[in-house]
């Protein structure tokens, strides 16, 4: 499915390996005297195949940025290029189609459908892509296998541990083979052992499947798995750190 292009949005010359680029992105909530400017001009580039951890205190604008990057929200002003397309000009349905085709989401609270088997949860995005039953089953099982839960396909979330639920959520996010995986505090509800397992899984997906990972986290231990750590402060990118030894957790050394 091609990226739905709105009128006026055209391909903009960019470096080949830049997947996402934000330029002067602002976001204001509300109007008049109660208006609150959450983003004050964010500039940010995401390279294809990168593993980025987004950090910052609450209210720093990192969640708003993630919502915009996830095409769940639109910037008030500024430019958002995804694969060279100007996303800020897309309407609601076009953004939904973009999410369906290119993005995968993992949430802190897992957000699996209750009373629904792991396989059915994983198959859900394929259902919206109109895949037939056999294809859904095959791709769903492959995704579950990737997260090491192929044997648990017929279990409902209530029958799975937190770590397993998050793995199912990751399987759901990658089943469509997205370009970008957006993870919003994926280890926030897990103990440190499970957290490390999830981070290792994300690292594997990043390395082996070439999925670009964007992750919000509060924990430096988890951020240490990323190649790049972007720090937010007061609605702006404060600083960008490159991590040359990703996966080596300082606390464990």
């Amino acid at each position: 499915m091609p990226v739905p292009a709105a009128g006026g949005a055209g391909r903009v010359a960019s470096k080949a390996d830049i997947l996402i680029s934000l330029r002067g992105v602002t976001k204001t909530f509300g109007q008049g005297p109660t208006a609150f400017q959450a983003l004050k001009g964010v500039d940010m580039d995401v390279r294809k195949g990168d593993f980025i951890a987004v950090m910052g205190p609450s209210g720093s604008g990192k969640s708003t940025t993630m919502n915009i990057l996830g095409c769940l929200d639109v910037p008030t002003a500024g430019q958002f290029l995804f694969r060279g397309f100007a996303i800020e000009t897309l309407d609601r349905d076009q953004r939904a189609l973009l999410r369906r085709r290119y993005l995968g989401f993992v949430f802190q609270g897992f957000n699996l459908l209750a009373r629904t088997t792991a396989l059915e949860n994983v198959e859900l995005p394929l259902l919206y892509r109109g895949e037939d039953r056999a294809t859904r089953h095959r791709m769903g099982m492959a995704a579950l296998d990737k997260v090491g839960l192929a044997d648990w396909w017929d279990h409902t979330p209530a029958e799975l541990s937190g770590g397993q639920q998050q793995r199912v959520a990751i399987a759901r996010a990658i089943v469509t083979q997205p370009d970008v995986l957006l993870a919003d505090e994926p280890t926030g509800n897990l103990d440190s052992e499970r957290s490390v397992e999830i981070m290792e899984l994300l690292t594997d997906l990043n390395r082996q499947s070439g999925i670009t990972v964007l992750m919000v986290t509060h924990e430096p231990d988890m951020a240490a798995f990323a190649h790049t750590v972007v720090h937010f402060k007061d609605g702006l990118v404060d600083r960008v750190e490159a991590n040359h030894r990703p996966g080596v957790v300082p606390a464990l050394n």
């Binding site: 996830g70 769940l72 609601r92 349905d93 939904a96 189609l97 973009l98 999410r99 369906r100 085709r101 993005l103 995968g104 989401f105 957000n111 459908l113 859900l124 995005p125 919206y128 892509r129 759901r172 996010a173």
Partner: peptide
């Protein structure tokens, strides 16, 4: 969830 994973 449905909207996030791409339901229009």
């Amino acid at each position: 969830i449905r909207l996030a994973i791409g339901a229009v």
